[in-house]
Amino acid sequence: MTTALNPRLQDIVDEFEAVRGQEKLQLLLEFSDELPPLPARYAEHRDLLEPVPECQSPLFLAVEVDGDGTAHLFFDAPPEAPTTRGFASILQTGLDGLSAEEILATPAEFTTQLGLSDLVSPLRLRGMAAMLARIKRRIQEQQGA
């Protein structure tokens, strides 16, 4: 059984599939520029964020699940790590505000569908997969709590 991507993430995959080479990097850069800043409650309490050591650049994330099961994602990465910011922004745009179930159903392989492996080293792409895995684990922890 293959799991379909949620429509928002599918749109992003389609956007990446439509461009090649240098244009793909430009698209990733646009995502990177659009990563929203942390809300004050995290910006002033960075210790509440979880570090993602699998990323080659510093990345922190937080996940909140509302009473109705809606999940909110928060990311922080420095401007000198635009690729990591771009990956975080893809997940933020594609997953923020979805239900916990929808996020848990996101296949880890979706990162390969972006067609970035010719441009970005495999270790970095694993960083994005690790972000997704940590988001899922956080959601499961909060559901179990």
Binding site: L25, Q26, L28, L29, S32, Q56, S57, P79, E80, A81, P82, T83, T84, G86, L119, V120, S121, R124
Partner: peptide, 9 residues
């Protein structure tokens, strides 16, 4: 660079 997008910024 280590970060493939940094040059573009």
């Amino acid at each position: 660079d280590e970060d493939v997008l940094l040059y573009e910024t």
